[in-house]
Computed example of a mutant assay.
Amino acid sequence: MPTPIPPRLAELRRQFGLRLRDVREGRGLSQERLGELAEVDRKTINRIENGMYSPRLDNVFQIADALDITVKELFDVPATPRNA
């Protein structure tokens, strides 16, 4: 059974996933198509967007490239309080 992650990390994953979804949908891409472009499985895209998976750094680079944005732009999520 996986070890639960701290609430702050769960929130950051959720925010990252929402950002990824917003950018992907803004580009008119399905999860399947983004996966193809980024050479990442569609299920992985889904898990990232739902905050259930923390992507490898290599995947983040591939996804940013596929979306034609910088990695920094992909991480442009709202700030969360440290004690959350």
Rank of each mutant, 00 (worst) to 15 (best):
M1R: 05
M1K: 10
P2K: 14
T3K: 15
T3D: 07
T3V: 10
T3I: 07
P4E: 08
P4R: 06
I5H: 10
I5W: 00
L9S: 12
L9T: 08
L9M: 15
L9H: 11
A10F: 02
E11V: 06
E11M: 12
L12N: 05
L12T: 07
Q15N: 14
Q15M: 13
F16W: 03
G17C: 09
G17I: 06
R19Q: 15
L20E: 07
R21I: 02
R21M: 10
D22G: 09
D22P: 05
R24I: 08
G26W: 09
G26A: 07
G26S: 07
R27I: 00
L29E: 03
S30Q: 03
Q31N: 04
Q31G: 13
E32N: 06
E32V: 06
E32S: 10
R33L: 08
R33K: 15
L34E: 00
G35C: 09
G35E: 03
E36N: 10
E36C: 03
E36Q: 14
E36M: 08
L37F: 05
L37R: 08
L37G: 03
A38H: 02
E39I: 03
E39M: 13
V40F: 00
D41P: 01
R42P: 12
R42Y: 03
R42V: 07
T44M: 07
T44I: 11
T44S: 13
I45H: 04
N46M: 12
R47T: 00
R47L: 09
I48L: 02
E49L: 14
E49V: 05
E49D: 05
N50Y: 03
G51V: 10
G51Q: 09
G51Y: 04
M52V: 12
M52R: 15
Y53Q: 15
Y53E: 10
Y53C: 02
S54M: 07
S54D: 13
P55C: 08
P55G: 11
R56I: 04
R56M: 11
L57P: 00
D58Y: 01
N59M: 06
N59G: 03
N59Y: 14
Q62T: 04
Q62H: 13
Q62S: 15
Q62I: 00
I63G: 01
D65N: 13
D65T: 12
A66G: 06
D68Q: 14
I69L: 10
T70V: 09
T70F: 05
V71E: 13
V71T: 15
V71C: 03
V71S: 09
K72T: 13
K72A: 15
K72F: 09
E73K: 08
E73R: 12
L74Y: 06
F75P: 02
D76A: 15
D76S: 14
V77P: 06
P78Q: 08
P78T: 01
A79C: 01
A79S: 14
T80K: 14
T80P: 00
P81F: 09
R82T: 11
N83I: 07
N83V: 02
A84M: 11
